[in-house]
Nucleic acid binder design. Sequence first.
DNA 1: CGGATGACGACAC
DNA 2: GGTGTCGCCATCC
Length: 95
Amino acid sequence: MDDDYVEAVLALVEDVPAGRVTTYGALARAVGTGGPRQVGRVMALHGDAVPWWRVVHADGRPATCHGGTAVDRLREEGVPLMARGRVDVRATEVS
DNA sequence: CGGATGACGACAC
DNA sequence: GGTGTCGCCATCC
């Protein structure tokens, strides 16, 4: 595994301010290499060190792992949640 | 080396 | 709008 790649992804996630979110695809594009799935793997392995709940799917669904803890954290940070705890990605995603 | 799997994404129905 | 299918890339079996 590329620790370099991991560091790049984690850095980008840490750079996401509270109240804002980003998507796996966006991260993958930002890093340049690999794909959304690689980003997902990185989060699964080393995501415990970063605000992983600010990383959502392209359709606005929060990471469904951890038993839905993400929604609570997002709401607490002031992220505007839509019906069923979905995020308006187009409005909330980091530019 | 071939096939299955996954914190994904886009498209068709 | 929910569900199914296919494509993607790295890992695991």
